[in-house]
Simulated scan of single mutants.
Amino acid sequence: MRSVRLFVHVAFALAILLLRPALALDALPSWNDGAAKQAIIAFVSRVTAEGGAEFVKPEDRIAVFDNDGTLWTEWPAYSQLFFALDRVKALAPKHPKWRKKQPFKAALENDFKTLAAGGEKTALRLVTATHAGNTPQEFQATVAQWLATAIHPFFKRRYDELVYQPMLELLSYLRANGFKTYIVSGGGSEFIRTFAERVYGVPPDMVIGSTIVTKFVVKDGEPMLLREPRVNFIDDKAGKPVGINEYLGRRPIAAFGNSDGDFEMLQWTTAGKGARFGLIVHHDDAQREAAYDRKSAVGRLNRGLDEAQARGWIVVSMKNDWKSVFPKPGP
């Protein structure tokens, strides 16, 4: 009889563990056991507890993630900008005037001071000039080839290896608990779609990003889409909630970013009714990645730091909250 009671108790305990949000075996092993990790787990527990006051139906469990600086490194420059610079060099033989014309001249000469001085306008000019004149499939094939061979100039690893291990775990943890995870990035949507499913587990139709004008054409009797060297939509700052609404038609309940470019996305997400969650990744780890925030030319975080506490957003310290930053290199 005693053995029967013992069996019942063990079975009951196992059932409780299995019914809890995907937590029992620590789904976030690269996170230190601090306030940030506890806040994530507590939020997921509340919105997945059926019958609870803050229960959210699975179809409404939408989480949106910025990409650059939130899911992979953006330091000392955005990865897509490095891609654009490499494309300038690859395409230069077809454009001899670029050798004397800015910003292409600076790109060919690795004149990063001139490029940085040009700011966003220069970056957009390089991107539109090097990303167009092809179909989405052709462009993605070019990106895939670049990702397979290009090495980051500072970290000396492939760009798609410079993703944040704690955030990969967070994406999986949320999906295991019925969340739909979307990428909402100022980077190009076709650029990110090339690797998002393989690297993040996020399929192409769940990527919202900046776009260039794309036209339907019939060429040699074949219908196709052709990318033109003109900006269509910039999915950054106030554009992020607009893009989310246009693509999804729903307001997320959780948003994750790292810079003031994500401020409006977090602001709009957490202003909704019911349980809400906002999180900012703070780059304060100069030893394992980089330390930058208020005065940075890339991923500037100023207003977010000032207002996060009042708005109830979690600020994650890469230095203190993450056991590791990047996945371990493969064999």
Rank of each mutant, 00 (worst) to 15 (best):
L171T: 12
S172E: 11
S172L: 12
Y173K: 15
Y173S: 06
L174K: 13
R175S: 09
A176P: 05
A176Y: 10
A176C: 11
N177E: 09
N177K: 12
N177M: 13
G178I: 13
F179M: 14
T181M: 04
Y182N: 08
I183T: 13
V184A: 10
V184T: 08
S185E: 15
S185C: 12
S185I: 14
G186I: 03
G186Y: 07
G186N: 05
G187L: 12
G187I: 12
G188Q: 15
G188N: 15
S189M: 05
S189W: 00
S189Q: 04
E190W: 03
E190K: 09
E190Q: 09
F191E: 00
F191G: 02
F191S: 08
I192S: 01
I192H: 05
R193Q: 10
T194K: 06
F195Y: 15
F195I: 11
E197S: 13
V199I: 11
V199A: 12
V199E: 08
Y200R: 12
Y200S: 05
G201T: 08
G201I: 08
V202K: 06
V202I: 12
V202P: 02
V202M: 10
P203M: 11
P203W: 10
M206P: 05
V207K: 03
I208Q: 09
I208S: 08
I208T: 09
I208Y: 06
I208G: 04
G209V: 13
G209T: 03
S210Q: 05
S210A: 10
S210F: 10
T211Q: 03
I212L: 15
I212D: 14
V213C: 03
T214C: 02
T214R: 01
F216H: 05
V217G: 01
V217E: 07
V218E: 06
V218I: 10
D220Y: 02
D220W: 01
G221I: 02
G221L: 01
G221N: 03
G221S: 00
E222Q: 13
E222T: 08
E222S: 09
E222G: 02
P223A: 03
P223I: 02
P223C: 00
L225E: 04
L225C: 00
L226P: 02
R227Q: 09
E228D: 02
E228L: 11
E228C: 07
P229F: 12
P229Y: 11
R230S: 10
R230V: 07
R230A: 15
R230Q: 13
N232V: 01
N232T: 13
F233K: 03
F233C: 01
I234W: 07
I234P: 03
D235L: 11
D235Q: 01
D236F: 04
D236N: 04
K237Q: 14
A238V: 14
A238L: 14
A238G: 09
G239N: 01
G239L: 01
G239M: 00
P241T: 03
P241A: 12
V242R: 07
V242F: 06
V242A: 13
G243N: 05
G243H: 09
I244G: 10
N245K: 15
N245W: 12
E246Y: 14
E246M: 14
Y247P: 05
L248A: 07
L248P: 07
R250E: 11
R250H: 08
R251L: 04
P252T: 09
I253Y: 07
